[in-house]
């Protein structure tokens, strides 16, 4: 039985898709059979970030509508073993994701995979609720600013009350905070909330802090999940986050504003 992990945020553009790709790839590299499912119907950019857009033949909606089988629609990543993508449709709207359809597809996938990572659309509307509904674990992606933190708080309320686990009275969805686009320099100047501020407001476990980094943009333009860029600060931060997700303890890096050494100047942001 797969664990279903939703990557969600409420606010748009905070790094959900970037994180879904990185964490999905990280889990697969750790030997877990992993699928990343794009719930952002109509926009479809997971496959772009993963560099797979030209290999999409069938998508999530085709499988829901039984126009294709799961095996036809799942795209196998050529760089990372055990990693598969189920793309979103570009031509449909969010109503194409029916409750029963989504449940059926996730149930079928659960038999074959260890992890199913659901990349949620922004907002707290139907598409986002659907991505959250079946989750066992949630990675709440938050930027260090007030509006993003407020939206994450709202999403945490929904996770505790409007998911399958809540409806069935099962143990609650396990919540992880992933703080992204973090800039220690801007925190020091008082332009952003600090890690401590955000932890205090949201009061959930900190899975990782991903620094604001040029390497994210470079990697996504190249169609490579940034976690595969071993030398980059963001890539390393995602590696730490995946290790913590799998139970390892690691100190948080990239949270303070120390001077960059030669290495940092060459490879950092």
């Amino acid at each position: 039985m797969a664990k279903i992990v939703v990557v969600t945020s409420g606010k748009g553009g905070v790094g959900k898709t970037t994180s879904s790709a990185a964490i999905g790839a990280g889990l697969a590299r750790a030997g877990h059979r992993t699928a990343i499912v794009d719930f952002d119907v109509g926009l479809r950019n997971l496959d772009l970030i993963m560099g797979l857009e030209r290999r999409v033949v069938y998508d999530f909606v085709n499988v829901i509508n039984e126009e294709a089988t799961l095996n036809q629609a799942l795209i196998r990543d050529k760089r990372v073993d055990n990693l598969f993508i189920l793309a979103a449709s570009q031509t449909r709207d969010k109503d194409a994701l029916t409750d029963d359809g989504v449940e059926r597809v996730l149930t079928e996938m659960s038999k074959d995979f260890d992890y199913i990572v659901c990349d949620s659309p922004a907002g707290i509307e139907r598409g986002a609720l659907m991505a959250m509904y079946f989750a066992d674990e949630a990675i709440v992606v938050t930027n260090p600013e007030v509006s993003s933190v407020r939206d994450s708080d709202r999403v945490l309320g929904i996770l505790s009350s409007k998911t399958r686990r809540a409806a069935n009275g099962q143990p609650k969805v396990r919540e992880h905070l992933l703080l992204t686009r973090y800039s220690p320099a801007r925190v020091q100047r008082g332009e952003m909330l600090s890690v401590e501020d955000v932890k205090e407001i949201l009061a959930i476990d900190l899975l990782g802090v991903i620094p604001e980094s040029q390497s994210v943009l470079t990697a996504s333009n190249a169609g490579v999940p940034v976690i595969l860029e071993e030398e980059s600060d963001a890539g390393q931060a995602y590696q730490d986050a995946v290790a913590r997700f799998l139970g390892e303890e690691r100190p948080h890096r990239f949270v303070s504003n120390e001077k960059k050494g030669l290495f940092g100047r060459l490879f950092g942001s």
């Binding site: 407020r150 708080d153 709202r154 945490l156 309320g157 009350s161 009061a203």
Partner: peptide
């Protein structure tokens, strides 16, 4: 026992 979140 749980936090009361924004919007709740």
């Amino acid at each position: 026992t749980q936090p009361v979140r924004s919007g709740q």
